[in-house]
């Protein structure tokens, strides 16, 4: 039971950031929402890894965190006009 509550709370968080990503008036708003969404999703992946007892989920979370960081930096440079 406690698994479902914890995963449910985090999933609601992902949905809230998704609302902001769809609504956001400027591209910067959308990017901020997507950046937070990737961090929340990393935590969710680790939790799901323990729930399903699969060690491989941790590797996926690590690679996901690295790629999200690089992607955010790339989009930020693009918005600045330096790419």
């Amino acid at each position: 039971m406690s698994w479902y509550i914890a995963i449910g709370i985090i999933t609601i968080g992902v949905i809230l950031t998704l609302i902001r990503a769809l609504k956001g008036p400027t591209p910067a708003d959308r990017m901020v929402a997507v950046d937070s969404m990737t961090t929340i999703t990393t935590a969710l992946l680790v939790l799901l890894g323990l729930y399903f007892k699969r060690y491989i989920y941790l590797d996926i979370a690590l690679v996901y965190a690295v790629l999200a960081f690089v992607a955010t930096l790339a989009v930020a440079r693009y918005m600045e006009g330096g790419l």
Partner: peptide, 19 residues
């Protein structure tokens, strides 16, 4: 996450101010 999250937020903030 602890090391990279502030950096990406700093990059986003600067980019949105300059754009």
């Amino acid at each position: 996450i602890l090391l990279t999250n502030p950096i990406s937020s700093h990059a986003l903030g600067r980019a949105s101010y300059r754009s």
